[in-house]
Design a protein around this nucleic acid. Structure first.
Lengths: 174, 174
DNA sequence: GTGATATGAATGAAAG
DNA sequence: CTTTCATTCATATCAC
């Protein structure tokens, strides 16, 4: 009834948690585009518990749409998976579960993902797929232009060669 | 939150009746009887975070008074506990906390930190790096290629090395 | 009708 | 991975 105007915590860099030894007072809020990618990875690509490397790549991909850190990606997948499972057990829908339409996921190891078209039902939020960060592709991105990240887009045969220097650890509050 | 001044729906009766599709799409509103039971469980029985099975039992019990699902019970306890703490935190030592805490559960924390470094153990097993795409299939039992992961699965080239020895360290403990 | 408040629902972050 | 905490969004109800 009323667009809640999701306050996209756009990048912009106003976020700040360093210095504060408190609990994170800055909570990452995924943008619509980020959610789309994350859900695509989760449901269509079968990503469940990405490794560190994968997290970094995903982060890099999502960064174009807003500020994001590795831990955000990590927590997102962890929560998403846990809650999907929780929903199955705890909220055993006697009626229905007003969340994602998951359900098949029987894979628990990632041994091999069975490609299957499943559309996530992002009926939750409002489609605000707009030019959120039009031109956000800042400079730092070019430094890592290894071109081997094919998370969502198409990638012919560039063959990156991936000895890039990725951050090895993202720590919160040094 | 105020004291349990059950100001619930003044309709007193049951605006939520099982089978009534009246407000099924709206959020659950506990009936008076349900609130009595819930509060009894909370204050007299000391229930704070019921397990899945407990939730189901509670749900079953409450169901005779109105439509209810497991998540409603779950969220009720979550919110009730969180908000009780929230108020307690607000009146840290005012001496007048409008709540009838019975003091069960002996919860003494609230501001208790654990001065301990928590290193998340991202145990990447030796093999079986969940490959997310159907294109990259790592060697079964040789070296684990974690350098580059084609999340899309459209990679025509396989990556070399990346940083394999990453140790993600969430140093989050305050 | 509008705003304040109570509270159900959701989820990021973190602890266990 | 499971469970809990904290913060925030969303909405029903009440006060005006």
């Amino acid at each position: 009834m009323e667009p809640q105007t999701q306050q996209l915590t756009e990048d912009g860099g106003n976020n700040n948690e360093a210095g504060s030894s408190r609990q994170s007072i800055t909570r990452w809020t995924p943008t619509n585009d980020q959610l789309i990618i994350l859900n695509d990875l989760y449901y269509n690509k079968g990503v469940r518990s990405p490794s560190n490397e994968q997290i970094q790549m995903i982060r890099f991909q999502l960064r174009q749409y807003g500020k994001i850190e590795g831990k955000n990606v990590f927590y997102w997948f962890q929560n998403h998976k846990a809650r999907e499972r929780q929903q199955m057990k705890k909220f055993t829908s006697d009626g229905h579960v007003p969340m994602q339409s998951s359900g098949l996921v029987g894979n628990g190891n990632g041994t091999n993902w069975k490609p299957e078209d499943q559309y996530m039902n992002m009926n939750n939020k409002y489609s605000n797929i707009s030019n959120i960060g039009q031109g956000v592709s800042s400079a730092p991105a070019s430094a890592y232009s290894a071109g081997m990240i094919a998370i969502n887009g198409q990638m012919g045969n560039y063959g990156g060669y991936g000895s890039m220097d990725m951050q090895k650890s993202f720590r919160v509050s040094t």
